[in-house]
Design a protein around this nucleic acid. Structure first.
Lengths: 187, 187
DNA sequence: GGGCCTATACCGAACGTTCGGTAATGTCAA
DNA sequence: TTGACATTACCGAACGTTCGGTATAGGCCC
């Protein structure tokens, strides 16, 4: 009978995610990951035989699954357009701690990680987000070309405002960006 | 003006060689190499930026140079055949500590190192030794095919007797092998 | 019911390597 | 002659990873 795990997989991923989101891939030393999870480095390797890269990959996959379920799906749902957008915005607000947190996609995609193991999944994730907003803008009445631009604008505002919020040490830019989504997506 | 080295290159190589000869490549941990040389691991990396592999490569090159100068060259020299062999034997005796030491070529060529970075140089070294003994046997009166066999036999006796000497904890097999060289090489 | 077994979780110590310093020394100018 | 400078030697601590253990727990058999 195996020894019961001292931390379950979901909680482990959540804690690892917090570290990667906070300091990026390179900044996430095994020591910091160990502190955050309560497991020794050797135990982290037991749970993730592929090591630090596997931890980051599983954290990323989990985050992308969450974004698809909580941002893309509401945008693509049937029903009232304004309510669909409101739900996506509420979930984005929760994801980024009302503008106090960074975006994991941003943190795992530092320049040195271009061409790295996370790049394809991150590219797909950004494309899925842009497409979801573009599709929404289409349904809201935008012409196709303008809808694509609006979709890219939406993701750009979200990402940029998170960076600016940290820079200014004030989450207001993120709040403003969420509020601006409506104006950007409806013609 | 640079800080003077606490150990010069020749002495450093000699001490590293002693470790590789004693425990092989895998057995030579950075800790053991550090102890043997008096340098911390970081300092070993300063002297050998290519790391442990470079240390072993330079140790091997130095050993091969020595063997060429002290075994191959005397065998290939001009002059009295018996004296040429005597000088080569004396140098082999010194190289292997009268049978109390292992052969570096043997120790760096553990099965896991087949196809490894040392394999080509070690192969060349063995070939050079076999060729030197074969050429000597040729000059001593052996026919070409028999001379080649005698050359391989000579190296086989040297290597095998070192292994047996360690196994029996008695250097006599090595001494016997050196004595047998004369009989093997002259027809 | 208790002791043994089996399987997995966990970890102390070590591995090879790198980072970001300090140490040592001769030269040169003031 | 002394202090600053420049250059290389050296190293404490940390990095990511693995080895060879110990710990935990339920099931099963006696």
């Amino acid at each position: 009978m195996p020894r019961p795990a001292s931390i379950d997989d979901a909680e482990l991923i959540a804690r690892l995610s917090g570290v990667f989101q906070d300091v990026g891939y390179e900044g996430a030393s095994l020591a910091v990951l160990s502190d955050a999870t309560g497991l020794q480095r050797a135990s982290l390797y037991h749970r993730f035989p592929g090591g630090k890269q596997q931890m980051a990959e599983e954290v990323l996959a989990s985050a992308i699954d969450w974004a698809v379920a909580n941002v893309v799906a509401p945008l693509n749902a049937k029903g009232d357009l304004a309510q669909r957008l409101a739900r996506a915005r509420a979930n984005l607000n929760e994801l980024y701690g009302s503008g106090t947190k960074s975006c994991l996609l941003n943190m795992l995609m530092a320049p040195r990680n271009l061409g790295g193991p996370f790049a394809p999944a991150i590219k797909s994730a950004f494309e899925a987000l842009v497409n979801a907003f573009a599709q929404f803008a289409r349904e809201a009445g935008h012409r196709p070309a303008a809808a694509r631009k609006a979709g890219e604008r939406a993701v750009t505002l979200i990402q940029g405002s998170l960076v600016l919020a940290r820079g200014l040490q004030n989450p207001k830019p993120f709040r403003d960006a969420l509020n601006a989504l409506e104006e950007e997506l409806f013609p």
